[in-house]
Every structure is written in structure tokens, then in C-alpha cells.
């Protein structure tokens, strides 16, 4: 469960002060499937970075699974990212020259999971995104959609409290996009918490709740009536 309470984020470069977030209150329950939308500069990426513990807040509280992580040290944040958060990026961000399996194993290496257990869990994760037969392929031998599925497997493998996807379909054609969204919908059905940042209204329609940002504030927060069902090809 995620709670943001009166969260502000102020960037200062020289004399220029930018208030990226101004007093955000947001609560996401376990098992929700939320889309964060908004034009560029609205604060949605900043929110994403804060939720992902990549960035710290200027003021306010961020409670993740009952712990206030606003005051955590860098090293504690790294541990929270490792244990509780799974990232899926627009540009896939897989390590080049490294096989799909090894990419998926990476978070487990940092978590200190030993060899055999690590491999078993990574194989399961790749299986669950339908890439069980391509574990030895390197990123450039995979299509965009397949790369993104490896990235999802990597996000899943640590059984995180929350999966954060930043424009996960931004680099994909519509067919691959629907593939990826079908995986997210299945993960949601299995009880995972998923937060997805997108500027495509179509994609947001696959989720269950849409939070709209504008000028560093939440403009609207509403449930999706009649969500679309993604069909895997």
C-alpha cells in the first residue's frame, strides 16, 4: 500500500526554482492497477521517480507498506528499490551483451539470492511473460515487445510490492503494446499492484483507475468505467 501525504518536490538550478509537485495526496491500495496521466511538465515523471525511490521529496510523507521512506538514506533506498519495487521503462533498459536470463537474474544478485534459487525464480518469471524459450537471447536478438517482456520479468522476479511502468508501450507498435498490456492485466488479476505512467488515453483505458496531473497537482482521480481487455496475439 502506498500513501503520499502533502508531498512537494522543488528543484533549484541556480536562481531558477521549479516546484514540480505541490502538495500531492495520493493513496494506492494493494492490488490496484492505476494509470498516471498528464501533459509533459505536469509532475507525473517526478511522482514516478519519488514512488520508485529514485528521488527524494522536499517535504511531505511517503509511506510504503507501512514504512515512511521519506527519511531513508541512499543505501536504504537502494534496498527498498531492490525488494519492493519493480521498474519497467520506456526504453526497456536491459543490459546489452547480457542474456535475457541474466538480465532477469540481476535484481536477485543484488538481493543476495544464491545461484540455483536465482535461476529457478528467473526462469519462472520469464515463463510467465511467455519467453521461456528465449532465455539465452541477448537484447539485440529480441524484438521490442520481447525486450519489454524481459524487462517485465525482471521487474516481477523479486515479487515486489509495486510494479512501476514508465511509458512501457512508448517504443512499441500497437500490436506489441497490446501484448504488453495483456501481461499487465494478467499480473493485475494475480493480485499485483501496478502503477503505469502514460500519455496515451488508449493505454490508460486498460487500467482500472486514472490519476491526472497538471502543473504539479492532481487534477482528477477517477475509476475507469468499462476497462478495455487486452488480447495477447
Amino acid at each position: 500500500m502506498i500513501t503520499l501525504k502533502d508531498v512537494s518536490k522543488i528543484y533549484q538550478t541556480g536562481d531558477v526554482v521549479v516546484a514540480a509537485l505541490q502538495g500531492i495526496d495520493l493513496q494506492i491500495e494493494k492490488g490496484e492497477f492505476v494509470a498516471i496521466m498528464g501533459p509533459s511538465g505536469s509532475g507525473k515523471s517526478t511522482t514516478m521517480n519519488i514512488l520508485g525511490c529514485l528521488d527524494t521529496l522536499t517535504s511531505g510523507e511517503y509511506v510504503l507498506d507501512g514504512t515512511n521512506v521519506a527519511k531513508a538514506s541512499k543505501s536504504e533506498l537502494a534496498e527498498v528499490r531492490n525488494r519492493k519495487i519493480g521498474f519497467v521503462f520506456q526504453g526497456f533498459n536491459l543490459l546489452p551483451r547480457t542474456t535475457a536470463l541474466e538480465n532477469v537474474e540481476l535484481p536477485l544478485i543484488y538481493a543476495g539470492v544464491s545461484g540455483r534459487e536465482r535461476k529457478k525464480r528467473s526462469l519462472d518469471a520469464l515463463e510467465s511473460v511467455g519467453l521461456g524459450s528465449r532465455i539465452d537471447h541477448k537484447p539485440k536478438e529480441l524484438s521490442g515487445g520481447q525486450q519489454q517482456r524481459v524487462a517485465i520479468a525482471r521487474a516481477l522476479v523479486t515479487s515486489p510490492s509495486i510494479i512501476l511502468a514508465d511509458e512501457p508501450t512508448g517504443n512499441l507498435d500497437s500490436r506489441s503494446s497490446e501484448d504488453v498490456m495483456s501481461i499487465f492485466q494478467r499480473l493485475h488479476a494475480q493480485g499485483n499492484t501496478i502503477v503505469l505512467v502514460t500519455h496515451e488515453p488508449d493505454i490508460a483505458q486498460y487500467t482500472r483507475r486514472i490519476v491526472r496531473f497538471r502543473d504539479g497537482k492532481i487534477e482528477a482521480d477517477e475509476a475507469v468505467k468499462d476497462p478495455r481487455i487486452a488480447v495477447a496475439q
Binding site: 529514485l54 543505501s75 537502494a78 534496498e79 528499490r81 525488494r83 521498474f87 533498459n93
Partner: peptide, 16 residues
Amino acid sequence: TREIGIRKAIGAKESD
């Protein structure tokens, strides 16, 4: 740099 970013995002500590 990007590789370091990825590693950090998925949980590598500074010491790692």
C-alpha cells in the same frame, strides 16, 4: 552511465 543507472534502479547500492 546508463548501465550504472539500470543497476542502481534495480537495487545496486553505491558500495556495490
